[in-house]
Amino acid sequence: MKILLTANLVPFMRGGADYHIEGVARALREQGHSVELLRFPFRFQPEAEIERLMAYVESLDMTAPNGVSIDRVISLQFPGYGVNHPDHTVWVMHQHRAMYELWDEKQANAEQRHLKSAVHAFDNCHLSKARRLFANSRRVAERLHTYNQLEARPLYHPPYNAERFYCDEEWGYVFCPSRLESLKRQDLLIEAARYLQTPAKILIAGEGGQRERYRQLIEQHGLDDRVRLLGGFSEEEKLAWYAHAMAVFFGPYDEDYGYITLEAMLAGKPVITCKDSGGPCEFVSHGETGWIVAPEPQAIAAAIDDAWHNRVRSAEMGRCATAAYHRAGISWQQVTEQLIGGKR
């Protein structure tokens, strides 16, 4: 089957999305399909640039460019799903979040308001035309339902290097790997350290814009002997640090999907997350494979203390988490079967 896969490209800002896009392309090729990957350069600013890209994409008819007929278009991101094709499958990684759940009515200017209504109209029009509509997670499906009254099926995919995660003896620390950004809320974890009754340690890995603020927070509360910002890390370090953790903290605000949860489960570790964290809550089962608590430092500290007080049970919860991951049947094989085979 000749498949055109569309996505965006934000030059030199590689992240989880790139891994996801390349993963889909590779998996489809392994299934024997011819795949062309079409990536649209994406700029967040200015607003007019986004509208220009939307208009351009909408103008593309990919049914049979240059007389070569394409069997299927699969789109992963806004605005690629605007491309015209009679058999269009959309697997929404996330919408243009700034115009949806991250929209701030008070801060918005006229241009942004204009863009917002344009994006909503664009999404309503093109997503409803898709032959099959999937969402990256239940959370993303919920948003499509809430904002666009569209029904999408959640379709999960495995994290990078899924087969390499392993579990080893736990060394009594809570591991938190994420970019250091406000939405990831590492500050909740740092603040939680102030309320710990047990000597559990906290290791926060990753780089990002909030590093200085987090560093000051640690210093300000004198938590230097309990909390450590590890900075950037290699793939090997990530594996090792997951392997020896007692538990993993991942409490972002309204995350779409969140590889961290799945990675922790693969590494056999229980996950501490928050009620409003979105994606992670789809995978963590409170009391069985982790803790879902209020997004407050005291509640997080209580969960960490709980993990520490019964470390044998915490390890058991980790094993349950691995089992839960495998039960969920998350694999590229499953992804391609759904993308190609499933009917809407």
């Binding site: 087969e163 392993y166 003896e169 340690k201 290791l203 470390r311």
Partner: peptide, 28 residues
């Protein structure tokens, strides 16, 4: 399980473990 009283000792040891992971062999 084991407990490290010293966070620097813990971080150092974790780095050693990471250095031992063979990038080439996909072993779990």
């Amino acid at each position: 399980s084991q407990t490290f009283n010293d966070i620097d000792g813990l971080v150092n040891r974790l780095k050693v473990v990471a250095r031992q992971i063979d990038t080439q062999s996909p072993s779990s």
